[in-house]
Simulated assay, not measured.
Amino acid sequence: MRRFSQVDVFTDELTLGNPVAVVHDADGLDDAQLAAFARWTNLSETTFLLPPTDPVADYRLRIFTTGRELPFAGHPTLGSARAWLAAGGVPHADLIVQECGAGLVHVRRDGERLAFAAPPLRRSGPVDDADLEPVLRGLRLDRRAVLDAAWADNGPGWLAVLLRDAEAVLAVEPDFGRLGTPDVGIVGRYAGSGPADVEVRAFADFGLEDPVTGSLNASIGQWLIGAGVLPERYVASQGTRLGRRGRVHVERIGGADGAGGAGGAGGQVWVGGDTVLGVSGTVAL
């Protein structure tokens, strides 16, 4: 028997965020067992806490969807950190250091809220028409509806599309059979007094809309803060069409001189949210 947690991420109320399943003390399980358990939970991600191989790290994390392993993902990072802390984990320093396929990821505690430092983009820059056209067909959008598009890949492989406003984002009815790959994120600003500054939606390669997505929000922040489209600090709403109330707090610390690490225009982008420990027990693995 191993300790098991399920954490709702990017919400302060259980059932309104994005859940992640966390298996503690997962050493001794092989890749087939990890993948099989992730398929069984049938959540967007399941994670496994392991002893670190890097002495700087507090723990090592492996992240699985129902179909593949990811080098990095945002809501599993925050949910796993919350589960690790709740199980008695004590970081070596002020920041929690997670080792994962993307390298070392730093997590800070802002009171009860956790935030991760966005890893550097693996791929960025404009999207050519050959790559954008099938995405637009899958989103059922005309090219004139798009203000901008960019590669925003920090591990999962995101292609991000900026629409004219939040209402346009909420109105999208995707054709998942035509979206294919890569994973696609869309974002639009709220005008005046909305529930947040922007609305975000994520359509992943497993053919579903993801409720609240840390990695996508991280890469959107790096892209649009760096481009001067969004302010240095803002709040994203996500999950609205799914009956969720995800809130993602994004900020860039450090300026164009490169202070603060990797991020848009030289600063470090941090992505934070509330977490709720919903399930705590053991699992027969």
Score class of each variant (00 low, 15 high):
residue 190 Y to E: 03
residue 109 R to Y: 07
residue 104 L to E: 06
residue 98 Q to S: 05
residue 263 G to E: 06
residue 149 A to S: 03
residue 278 G to D: 13
residue 256 A to D: 11
residue 250 V to T: 11
residue 74 G to C: 01
residue 242 L to P: 01
residue 139 L to Q: 05
residue 284 A to T: 15
residue 17 G to K: 02
residue 239 G to E: 07
residue 234 Y to F: 15
residue 71 P to F: 05
residue 95 L to W: 06
residue 256 A to C: 11
residue 6 Q to I: 09
residue 46 T to H: 02
residue 163 L to K: 04
residue 273 G to Q: 00
residue 260 G to S: 02
residue 48 F to S: 04
residue 33 Q to R: 14
residue 14 L to H: 13
residue 105 V to F: 01
residue 280 S to P: 06
residue 135 V to D: 02
residue 155 G to A: 07
residue 165 D to I: 03
residue 122 R to G: 15
residue 199 E to R: 14
residue 235 V to W: 03
residue 111 G to L: 01
residue 49 L to K: 05
residue 132 L to Q: 13
residue 41 T to G: 03
residue 260 G to C: 00
residue 136 L to F: 09
residue 254 G to I: 02
residue 264 G to M: 02
residue 129 D to P: 10
residue 161 V to I: 03
residue 253 I to L: 14
residue 182 P to A: 08
residue 186 I to C: 06
residue 39 R to W: 13
residue 141 L to M: 12
residue 272 G to K: 08
residue 67 G to Y: 10
residue 240 T to W: 08
residue 46 T to L: 01
residue 108 R to H: 05
residue 149 A to G: 00
residue 171 A to V: 11
residue 265 A to E: 11
residue 280 S to G: 12
residue 249 H to Q: 10
residue 82 R to D: 12
residue 140 R to D: 12
residue 216 L to M: 01
residue 42 N to D: 15
residue 144 R to D: 15
residue 285 L to T: 14
residue 141 L to V: 13
residue 49 L to F: 00
residue 88 G to D: 08
residue 22 V to Q: 02
residue 72 F to C: 12
residue 60 R to D: 00
residue 273 G to W: 01
residue 176 F to T: 07
residue 8 D to T: 09
residue 155 G to R: 01
residue 86 A to N: 13
residue 95 L to P: 06
residue 167 E to S: 14
residue 231 P to H: 10
residue 108 R to V: 09
residue 39 R to Q: 05
residue 159 L to H: 01
residue 51 P to D: 01
residue 158 W to H: 05
residue 136 L to A: 09
residue 121 L to F: 01
residue 86 A to S: 14
residue 151 W to A: 01
residue 112 E to R: 14
residue 60 R to M: 01
residue 94 D to I: 12
residue 272 G to D: 08
residue 180 G to E: 00
residue 269 V to G: 10
residue 101 G to M: 04
residue 214 G to L: 05
residue 82 R to P: 11
residue 235 V to A: 04
residue 35 A to C: 02
residue 153 D to F: 14
residue 166 A to G: 05
residue 88 G to N: 04
residue 204 A to K: 13
residue 10 F to T: 13
residue 92 H to K: 15
residue 226 G to R: 09
residue 89 G to N: 05
residue 149 A to F: 08
residue 56 V to F: 02
residue 218 A to I: 02
residue 14 L to Q: 13
residue 180 G to K: 05
residue 248 V to M: 00
residue 174 P to I: 02
residue 59 Y to V: 01
residue 189 R to Y: 12
residue 262 A to P: 14
residue 214 G to V: 07
residue 201 R to S: 04
residue 91 P to W: 05
residue 241 R to T: 15
